[in-house]
Write a protein that binds this DNA or RNA. Structure first.
Length: 489
RNA sequence: GGGGGUGUAGCUCAGGAGGUAGAGCAUCUGCCUUUUAAGCAGGUGGCCGCAGGUUCGAGUCCUGCCACCCUCACCA
């Protein structure tokens, strides 16, 4: 029982004293008249008016001076200083403050507002009450909570003691709002599609499996939304989007969390060039809404979200960079040249995979400014339309920022005959041991056979985008509760 | 999975070459009625990640394990 560290036991002792005094340490409610920010905004009206304000928040600092004390409480929008004086509140309340409250407690105060001689807007306390006793001590006031493991496992402590962390997540929400505002204004409809799916598809990835007891059915958590959103396009919703949690049963590192967020959007009657025009306008808008500017800095490098973005074809930029033009080569020849460039293509099973590997090894890291890389190999783009002019390529682009892939888009394949062939090729890859090639989705093919309008679609990794917009090095900094191994007890 | 690093008080961190465990903040006791990392004086607080080993003696050296971080590989 009483094995508690002294610093914690002291708080339990105070709780007992409160109970002896018949003071409720865990209140039911507190009527607030103002938030801390409102007091500051309305100071000129409040000063000298005799109006009493009631504010509540977490007690974060105390500076005692004998018979008077200063302190700060933090609420949703910021902090406010209070001044409590023996002469005003009397012996009982002052001793209650001095002896029974701790940093970390949630308290409510009432009093008039004034400015100290250093000019800080301050509440002169007339009444003070405890709303919730904090039984565990908070991290240190100056350094905050630094240990990354503790920050991620106990995010609430991170949020309490590191105000900048709160800003990152506020920006994350601003990003969602900006996408919604932009897309809604352009006639897109926000929709929801299944997370639990009997067949996964729309990307190359290992899925999470689960089991539906009612139907004794193996189910998967979605790896992408693509095939369901296209069904909606077929159904006559011509512009749709979804902000979607996807799940991939793969590695965990600074760029990957097993559960992550994308936005996918589809517009009928567009091709991938329309989507590029749209995407750069949308990204410029989102960056401006989140950061207040399109000119940002990520890991010491200036990045401009000002449209238009650079556009260059994958094969051309790779040829420029490496001196090897892979166009017109067959699989064996491409492999030979890739190896001559020092790129390991041992596990690559077709021409496109080889070219993509060379690109991602030797070119990708240099794409710091937002750049559209266009015209990907057709054999690694099973859901994209074949390029109208360039044999072997597809009408597909990916967007790179700060050397990382952030979005991926196509002129969507709408020919069910070619789609079936593409799926068949994926089944070959599966049989060759490619675990990430998705199984064939007959229901989706049936939908396509009813006729799908020409369509362009885009997927954008929102975790990576907000990392860049908040200058965060790890995906764990932008996900409230990133995946952590449970601690062994 | 490979390589490198970290783990010591509630928090942030020191502990040189094996010899009784340290600081700041917090906490506790005094003093202090406009401070803001308030101040002054004094005190409490430790499974040194876990388990073994070497040694007269291990926070320190060795082995194994655990968690986390960085990095490479993998991952659209």
């Amino acid at each position: 029982m009483s094995e508690r560290p002294e610093i914690i036991q002291a708080r339990y002792d105070k709780l007992s004293k409160l109970q002896e005094l018949n003071i409720t340490a865990f209140a039911y409610k507190f009527h607030r008249t103002h938030l801390s920010a409102e007091i500051k905004d309305k100071y000129t009206e409040l000063e000298g008016s005799g109006e009493k304000v009631r504010v509540a928040g977490r007690l974060m600092a105390i500076r005692g001076h004998g018979k008077s004390s200063f302190g700060h409480i933090w609420d949703n929008d910021g902090k406010i200083q209070f001044y409590i004086k023996y002469d005003i509140v009397g012996e009982e309340q002052y001793n209650f403050f001095k002896k029974l409250l701790d940093i970390g407690d949630i308290i409510g105060i009432e009093g008039e507002v004034f400015k100290t001689k250093t000019g800080e807007i301050t509440v002169k306390v007339e009444k003070i009450e405890i709303l919730s006793k904090s039984l565990l001590p908070l991290p240190e006031k100056w350094h905050g909570l630094v240990d990354k493991e503790a920050r991620y496992r106990q995010r609430y402590l991170d949020l309490i003691s590191n105000p900048k962390v709160k800003e990152i997540f506020i920006k994350r929400t601003k990003m969602y709002k900006a996408f919604r505002a932009f897309l809604d204004s352009q006639g897109f409809l926000e929709v929801e599609t299944p997370i639990l799916q009997p067949i996964y598809g729309g990307a190359f990835a290992k899925p999470f499996q689960t089991h539906l007891n009612a139907l004794d059915l193996r189910m998967y958590l979605r790896i992408a939304d693509e095939l369901y959103l296209k069904r909606l396009i077929i159904g006559g919703f011509e512009k749709v989007y979804e902000i979607c949690k996807d799940f991939r049963n793969e590695g965990v590192d600074r760029l990957h969390n097993p559960e992550f967020t994308q936005i996918e959007l589809y517009s009928a009657y567009w091709d991938y060039r329309d989507m590029m025009d749209f995407t750069e306008r949308m990204l410029e808008f989102v960056a401006g809404e989140v950061c207040g500017t399109t000119e940002i800095e990520y890991e010491g490098r200036a990045i401009s979200f000002k449209a238009p973005f650079k556009r260059v074809s994958m094969l051309e930029v790779t040829a420029e960079k490496t001196g090897v033009d892979f166009r017109g080569m067959d699989y064996a020849e491409a492999k030979k040249y890739a190896e001559s460039l020092g790129v390991d293509v041992g596990g690559k099973r077709n021409w496109g995979q080889v070219v993509e590997e060379v690109f991602s090894e030797l070119v990708q890291a240099d794409l710091v400014q937002p750049t559209f890389i266009t015209d990907f190999p057709a054999d690694i783009s099973p859901l994209a339309k074949p390029h109208r002019d360039k044999p072997g390529l597809s009408e597909r682009f990916e967007g790179y920022i700060a050397g990382e892939e952030v979005f991926n888009a196509f002129s969507e394949l709408n020919d069910p005959i070619i789609q079936r062939e593409k799926f068949a090729e994926l089944q070959k890859l599966r049989r060759l041991g490619d675990e990430e090639a998705p199984p064939i989705d007959e229901d989706f093919l049936t939908a396509m056979e009813y006729g799908m309008p020409p369509t362009a679609g885009l997927g954008c990794g929102l975790d990576r985008l907000i990392m860049i917009l908040t200058d965060s090095h790890s995906i764990r900094e932008v996900i409230f509760f990133p995946l952590m191994k449970p601690e062994e007890k």
